[in-house]
Design a protein around this nucleic acid. Sequence first.
DNA 1: AGCACGCCGACT
DNA 2: GTCGGCGTGCTC
Length: 737
Amino acid sequence: MSDVTTDLFGGPARRAGRVVPVLVPMPAPRPYSYAVPDEMHVEPGSVVQVPLGPRQVFGVVWDGAEDEAVDPKKLRPITKVFDCPPLKEEHRRFLDWVSTYTLSPPGLVARMALRAPAGFDPEPMVEGLRYSGILPERMTAARTRVLDLARDGLSWTRSGLAHAAGVSSSVIDGMTAQGVFETVFIPPPPVVPLPDPDHGASRLEGAQAEAAAELLAEVRALKFSVSLMDGITGSGKTEVYFEAIAETLRQGRQVLILLPEIALTASFLERFESRFGAKPAEWHSDLAPKTRERVWRQAATGDVRVVAGARSALFLPFDDLGLIIVDEEHDPAYKQEDRVFYNARDMAVVRGHIGRFPVVLVSATPSVESQVNGLSGRYRPIHLPVRFGDAALPDLHLIDMRRHPPERGGFLSPVLLRAIGKTVAKGEQALLFLNRRGYAPLTLCRVCGHRFQCPQCSSWLVEHRFRGQIQCHQCGYAERTPECCPECGTFDHLVACGPGVERIAEEVERHFPDARTIVLSSDILGGVKRLRLELDAIAKGEADIVIGTQLVAKGHNFPLMSLVGIVDADLGLANGDPRAAERTFQLLSQVTGRAGRSGLKSHGLLQTYQPQHPVMQAIVSGDAHAFYEREIAERERAHLPPFGRLASIIVSADTRNDAEAHARALRLAAPSTQGITVLGPAEAPLALVRGRHRFRLLVHGQRSSDMQGFLKAMIAAGPRERGSVHVQLDIDPQSFL
DNA sequence: AGCACGCCGACT
DNA sequence: GTCGGCGTGCTC
């Protein structure tokens, strides 16, 4: 190989001591410099191993501005270059962009693209067999079947051939011993078979066909675009975007389907398989290490055509990515809130822009900012109405709790109780939804008024009667339920305030002692396995009344479910979160959508003290558009995203006092800034509550450059405890691409 | 982010 | 006398 003239790092190589920048997985502000040993070939994007302090780490050879000379005495040589495709130019620009946008060190962003230790070297060849032309000494029926397959001269794996011929592998071994096969080395099999774009194509009609045609046109245009596809559950969004995937596959390009982690279910994969004849490669946090490496590598080589993954899949080193689908685009799980703070939905848009390919955002209840982008024409809106002849939507009604109060000590109104009774009597199922785990969210002493509070983070301790514990849902602190008040020592005067699912179950059992009642919440004893069993049991009709938290909102179909009761539809409306109304709308839409999917005439009843609230009105009238319009206007008034003309800053910290203190300092650091919102510990994400002296700034605004200048000044001037400032720019990325 | 170094409290 | 908590500083 010729050397000097092909040096990719500008000009002839200085033979003695070529130096390249390398991004290492630590929070340095820029790449470190390493010496390239003679005879070693590296180029920008090469995945390498380098010494860093006392250990060896993975890194990526970078490019860009020449960095100032580093003390040559510090310079150490690259240990090794991995034999894998270098990260592509567009991938590197993407990582740079994410680093700048999120104000995260580039090395930590690059680390997300290298999350497959040991996947960087090629997989070893697999030992295989090929027919040698020699016949076995004696023919048997089993041997004939094997030879019929092997005669084509292609290579087989030992177990693959045995399986295909329907014989045991000892038949193969016997033939091998007689020289029927010669050993060959074949490339390892792909992690998933190739998907066939024309495998299970179904004919789409009406609105679905029109929507698919629009997406197809975007794919064929071979350029950047963002489409926002909305339509309620059952309107066939998945079938429509499958058509866009098929077209991208026909172009020979790769596809990424982003899903919130919990939506990556077997049922989604099966749906994909029945359309394309093969499963997509999966990518999520609890993938087996071996599989993880293979998916990483095969995405890089192009052997994997479709990846369905959680947000981190966005950082895979695709060979030729041609389409990203972001399903459930409104889902907050797309936000990563530790180390590098980013929203995968927005970064997907950025990756599409850099790679010049289409991105499709999909949701039954789009986020307000995406809706705005759809309305303004920045994203192309595609609306799917309900298909004619489909199961009717549930018939939804509000229960005004001021007019139909529950009996003393209860939480279920007589109207809802009557409806449950009727449903159960018909042999159908009722779902009661309350997004609150445990028995009661607050316990207090009736004698002295003491309230049980978390000693670590100061939120209320939630009683879990079934486990005999009081727990902090913020930080995980738990203790045995005390029998007396720690303040005044009085026994038997502790009182539970407010309902949780366990308490609703108690009330239901009191009214319907003969009904089979199940409580479903994420803290269920027996974990995910038990949960799956319970869900199957419910689907088979082995329960009459199901009481569940938000985990019943997703996915599962209960064919016998004909009543949904929302115990407290107002819960979540008044928690200080600027997205409270939006989140409630999304959650309640999902839950009420659980009924009415079976052909049974079904009903939804929402208990509320605020029947006039826009969320309640939007849900029962089915007029989502009116809700969005109002919500958008509301935010415009409050200078909240996506319209904040001035920066809007949200500070959250582990105590409300800390948050207030930070906010005061921010006002001092940047007096022109308006709209500082302070969130207390209840709203602070778990990760931040756990680490002490950490706070988070959520900055909403429209222009990234302004935001960043402002933030840098503020960080320099503001209070900073051990450098642990985390910043999330919750801005529309398109406005400053 | 890791990891070493270093300085004060309770224990095999 | 040591073990071990986490504060501080460094890595091309």
